[in-house]
Amino acid sequence: MRKLLTLSLISAAIFGAMPALASTGTAKLMSAEGSYEGMFGRFDRAQLQRGFQIYKEVCASCHSMKELHFRNLGEKYGPFYSPEHANPNENPVVKAIAKGYVIADVDASGNDVERAGLPSDRFPAPFASDAQAKAANGGVAPPDLSVITKARMGGADYIYSLMMGYGHAVPHGVVVGAGKSYNPYFAGGVIGMAQQLTDDRVTYADTEANKGIKPTAAQESRDIAAFLQWASDPHQTERKAAGLGVMLFLFVFALFTWFSYQSIWRKVEH
């Protein structure tokens, strides 16, 4: 047992140290102080709603979220979940959000039509193709944000830091081309996206949950980071909750197996 413990400690140390050893030279990330971090972390629904608002009003003009459907917004632990409408497709808020979008479709007679969105529709992409996205954004296509916090080291903290990383003095030797910005959290330091989240960029809904929350740049950055964190892995709350039960079960199971083991080997010298 002692050896096993030592071994697991050593391996944990190695795994833990590796990312630090491989730091890529970008600035140390700032924490988004997300309520969702850690084994017991849970999302703040009001924050997810604000984050979705920011995505919709700011990010969505350039960034797609192809893997998300409007119905996802009403799923359990999602921004607009309501217990009365456990089926997200029936959720009136979700329906209303979807209806606000125009979806290109083909009707039964084969004509191109535009119709109002349904909860089963995907978030529409701002550009029809990768090539168009590139052409409209200085040669670099804005990345899809569906799994962005999984696709970047640091996850939500990276998003928060990146949003807040504008306005630093450009260090000597870094050349920032026309239409580009300097951002120390971005790999290479030169980013195609200009600063987006500034104070009062959006107006938060005047609800009970938003009371006292001002749309400062930092608040907006935290909110979009939370929303993207949720969107990248919508089942994470469920996962953490299930994990608690499984860990507890395995612990008790291990205890019983241990006593069984001791009892069976009691008479054996070994």
């Binding site: 079960f249 019983f256 069976i264």
Partner: peptide
């Protein structure tokens, strides 16, 4: 009882 309980947990875990 310990063995029975251990076996039961194994079955429960399998079902899970």
């Amino acid at each position: 009882m310990i063995h029975v309980a251990t076996g039961a947990m194994m079955v429960g875990g399998g079902a899970m």
